[in-house]
Computed example of a mutant assay.
Amino acid sequence: MNFRQIEAFRAVIITGTVSAGAELMGITQPAVSRLIAELETSTGFALFDRVKGRLVPTPEGQIFYRDVEASFRGLDRLRSSAARIRDFGSGHIRVASLAAAGSTIVPRAVRKFRETHPSAIVTLSIMTSAAVRNHVVDGEFDLGLAADEVDLSGVGHQVFGSFPALCAMPAGHPLAVKSVIGPQDFDGVDYVALSPEDRARLQFDRLCAEAGVRPNLVIETPFAITACALALEGVGVGIVNPLAIDGFAERGLIFRPFEPAVYFKSYLLFRPDMQKASLVRAFVAALLDVRNTRHSASSTGADRPPLTDETSPAIAGQS
């Protein structure tokens, strides 16, 4: 088995025909057929069935292709890594973040990180917490910031913080006259909810059930920043992560504390082999510094609550 044979197999899969695969590789059609025949001999099983003159992947061929494609993705990463090293040098960190922090606290951490590492390249991707966890586990990102509903098995992790929820509502909403919002205030109120698996959403639902109230759920979204946008448009009242609220008060959205407290807990996730890497440690330090200085008073008419409880996580790789 050699790379050229694997390349021919992949070319036929992604183009659908031997002739198109040959054109993609820049070789003749008989050469592609020969390479695939050699690969089938090497693997010991048929990769394609010949159906009415066409090659259709066998079940074994489909399974084999999944591993082939994973290998090519790895090769693409190697090409990208080589290009970055050639163009920018070796300093590079890949960060994935949940959406609530991806437009606020993480960009500030990037700015702070670059003050001490001006030559380092940062790749930042915003995705769901589940995707953050999976990409870190797969080694595609060095550091992740995710909500606490993710599976923490197989990944290095530490608590980033617990953030008390705020109640978001449009200007002029009847609840805006209250200084603190409780579950009893939601009875019959149009409600913008987070995803059912969100831990803060589950806490809120439990408090409403215990109080015997029933909010009027009108829409669900996985992203707190979207919940803020929906509340701003008057769709309903939301329970939101304070990491996601920046800029919305200036646009007219009203925020009030919610009691009993509902917490948005988040974790830093690491590839096990990257937790003590110097760039990762430096970026985590920047994140924690931004987190710790973000409790200044907001312009909502009420003080912004502290963004951490008694938890004080250590910088990655330190006790």
Rank of each mutant, 00 (worst) to 15 (best):
A227W: 09
L143H: 00
D67G: 09
E210N: 01
L217S: 13
S119T: 15
M25N: 10
D185R: 05
M1D: 10
T116K: 02
R10C: 05
H157I: 04
L124I: 03
D198H: 15
S81W: 14
S298Y: 12
A120H: 05
D273A: 12
S312Q: 15
R73A: 06
E220T: 14
R108W: 07
D138V: 04
I315T: 12
P118V: 05
N216G: 05
S179I: 02
G16E: 08
R73L: 10
P306F: 09
T123K: 01
S71A: 14
T308V: 12
A147L: 12
D76G: 11
H157G: 01
L24C: 01
D76K: 11
A193Y: 03
L145D: 01
A100K: 05
D273I: 12
R201P: 02
V192S: 04
L307P: 00
R291V: 07
R256Q: 07
P164V: 10
F9S: 00
N216F: 07
A70N: 15
L75M: 04
S129G: 08
Q158G: 05
C167S: 13
D49I: 07
R251M: 06
R84P: 00
F255Y: 14
S42L: 00
A176N: 12
G182P: 11
K276I: 01
S125L: 13
S298I: 11
P170W: 06
G301T: 06
T17W: 15
V137P: 08
D151W: 02
V68T: 11
A11V: 08
E69D: 15
A109R: 03
V240E: 03
G252K: 03
L124H: 15
D246T: 04
V32K: 05
T104S: 13
L24I: 04
A70K: 11
A11H: 13
R111M: 09
R10P: 02
S319I: 14
F88H: 14
T128W: 08
F48L: 03
F264V: 07
P242F: 02
L268M: 12
V280Q: 01
H92V: 06
R54T: 11
H173S: 11
I27L: 06
A171N: 09
S97T: 15
F283R: 02
A146P: 09
G317Y: 04
S103T: 06
R271K: 12
D198C: 14
D76C: 10
L243I: 10
P272R: 03
V159I: 14
I219T: 14
C167W: 13
A147F: 12
P174W: 09
L307A: 02
H295Q: 15
V110L: 02
R271C: 07
A297S: 10
P215T: 14
V262G: 06
I225F: 03
V262L: 08
Q29K: 13
L230V: 10
R84Q: 03
L269A: 06
S195I: 12
G26H: 04
I36M: 11
V95N: 02
Q5A: 07
R4G: 07
I121E: 15
L143G: 00
L24N: 02
I225N: 06
V110F: 00
